[in-house]
């Protein structure tokens, strides 16, 4: 289409001049530089939030399947709490409310707050999946582990979790892809990630189509690459003699 102008990405962000080679050097920043750095922020927020979500979501999901009532309650409350408040509201809570309630959090960079907010939100969803995965093994595997003399933690470690995680790889994959997409809420607290870049660059250059196409492409590539990576993992850990990841 003749009206498209991909040169926009080679422009300097300050004076609007096209920079040869498209990458600015020595203090100059082109829109391409900015786009890539914004992509970096998106990936960083997503990756760190995923680590938080996997760790806490697994822990909470596991607690909900233990025989201890108090731990089950803790896991349930956690899950319901973070699952039932809209993500954007949670991000604002972390940004505006929590630091006033807990003074030590006042100096914490908004990047960290977003990672916590997105991580906890997603942990509630992962907790659900981990719980369902463990419960799908029914009681038999747990009893078999305990009957061999494993302690409860050993039973989880060696018997229940290896199968539960295999079973939940597909929902975990879509949850990980969701994190990349959901990381766009970070723009609301001024993290310079892809969505914020799109909003600002489109305003400055009036080249909305090119800017949004580029940003869309990067979101797509990120989520798609993650999806392929998880498929690879799924195939690697497939149990011989079982259809799909496992389950009875």
């Amino acid at each position: 289409m003749s009206s498209w102008d991909w040169q926009v990405f080679c422009k300097d962000t300050i004076d609007g001049e096209v920079v040869p080679g498209c990458f600015g050097g020595a203090g100059d920043v082109t829109y391409l530089d900015w786009l890539l750095s914004a992509w970096g922020w998106t990936l960083s927020v997503s990756a760190l939030a995923l680590v938080v979500a996997l760790a806490l979501g697994s822990l909470m999901g596991i607690l909900r399947t233990t025989p201890h009532r108090g731990l089950v309650l803790l896991g349930n409350v956690w899950t319901e709490l973070f699952r039932n408040i809209p993500l954007l509201v949670q991000i604002f809570l972390w940004y505006h409310v929590v630091p006033t309630l807990i003074p030590p959090l006042r100096g914490v960079p908004s990047f960290i707050l977003v990672v916590i907010g997105l991580g906890l939100f997603t942990s509630a969803r992962i907790s659900e999946q981990v719980r369902a995965g463990i419960q799908s093994l029914a009681g038999g595997q747990r009893m078999a582990g305990l009957a061999m003399g494993f302690t409860l933690p050993q039973t989880y470690r060696h018997v229940l979790l290896p199968m539960a995680y295999r079973i939940i790889i597909p929902p975990l994959t879509s949850e990980s892809m969701n994190i990349i997409k959901n990381s766009s809420v970070a723009f609301a607290v001024s993290i310079s990630e892809l969505t914020l870049f799109a909003l600002q660059a489109q305003e400055e250059t009036s080249r909305g189509i090119e800017v949004y196409l580029a940003v869309t492409g990067l979101y797509f590539v990120s989520a798609f690459a993650l999806n392929r990576a998880m498929l690879f993992v799924e195939n690697r850990v497939r149990v011989p003699g079982m259809i799909g990841g496992g389950g009875h």
Binding site: G140, Q141, M143, A144, G145, L146, A147, M148, G149, F150, T151, Q154, H158, V159, P162, M163, R166, V239, G241, M242, G246, H248
Partner: peptide
């Protein structure tokens, strides 16, 4: 109990081998 169970063998109706 884990120590005691380690010395008591148990066989289940549905085998319950560890599939992975």
């Amino acid at each position: 109990l884990p120590k005691l169970r380690a010395r008591v063998g148990m066989v289940f109706q549905h085998f319950e081998l560890f599939p992975h």
